Every structure is written in C-alpha cells, then in structure tokens.
Simulated assay, not measured.
Amino acid sequence: MLFRRQGENLDYVCTADVVRGDIIVINDVIGIAATSASTGDLIAVYMEGVFALPKGEEELKQGKKVYYDKTTKKITATAPAAAAALSEAEEPAALAEDDKVLAGIVWEDAASSAGQVFVKIN
C-alpha cells in the first residue's frame, strides 16, 4: 500500500468557469472550488470540511443527510428519486443520473427561513 496524500483536496480540471466557493459536482459527490478559474484550468477542490451552502425553504436538522439539487442549485433533504426507489439491499448506483447528489450532513440546525445551511460535505 502506498500513501499518496491526505485527501482533503482533489485535483480537478474545470469543465466550466468557476468562482472560489462554487459547488462542483464530481460524479456522486460534491466539492467546493478552492479558487476561481476558467474552463480547462486545474484547481484544488475541497472534499472535506463544513461549508455554508444555499438552501431552499425547508427546515434542516443537525445530522440529517442532505443532497445538492443540480437544478435549483440548493441543498435539500429530499433524496434523489433513484435512491428513494431502492430497497435497503440495493446499492445507489443510479444516483449520478439523478438531479440530486449527496452533499453530506447538516452541521447545525437551519430554520426554514434561513438562506443557507452549514453542511459537512462528503
């Protein structure tokens, strides 16, 4: 076994222009852009940590699993349709095809009126 690195950051080639702090969807997970960059640039993406992310009008409770909705660009507790249809014995292989991707867990309660929620990603 060969240790490569800690793993807090992931090297990522931008598929679009990004601004520092943007949510980047990478297959089945999200990361946070560490810097602003243009399409084709190589940047670091944070893959661990607690971040203030935009949310809809639902109340979110500490410890709740949450998802990033690629359509609304907000955090939600509503699971992807593919995950909701799976039995407990099945693996969530179809999540990347859905409109939502796992973001992490709610770090602290967020009222329905709050515009953001603290999420421990991945």
Rank of each mutant, 00 (worst) to 15 (best):
A93T: 15
P54A: 04
K55L: 01
F118H: 11
E97K: 15
A79M: 01
E90M: 10
E8H: 05
A52G: 10
A52Q: 07
E90D: 15
Y67I: 01
G115M: 00
A94Q: 13
D11T: 13
A37C: 11
I30L: 02
I43E: 00
V66W: 01
E90Q: 14
P54H: 14
I30T: 15
E8F: 15
Q6P: 11
D11F: 12
A82I: 10
D69C: 10
V25Y: 07
P92Q: 06
E59V: 15
D11P: 14
A89Q: 04
A33V: 12
A85V: 09
A52I: 05
P80A: 07
K64G: 02
L42A: 11
A114G: 04
Q62R: 15
R4G: 08
A52L: 03
A85E: 00
V66K: 02
A37Q: 02
I43P: 00
W107I: 06
A82W: 07
Q6H: 06
A114I: 02
P80H: 11
V66H: 06
S112F: 14
D17R: 05
Q6S: 13
E97T: 10
K70S: 11
K73R: 15
E8D: 07
T15Q: 13
I26P: 00
R5V: 09
V13G: 01
A111T: 10
V13S: 05
Y67W: 13
G21H: 09
A94H: 03
T15P: 03
K70V: 02
G31Y: 03
A110C: 07
K74R: 14
L86Q: 11
A83T: 05
K70C: 10
V29D: 08
V117C: 13
V101C: 02
A103P: 07
G7W: 14
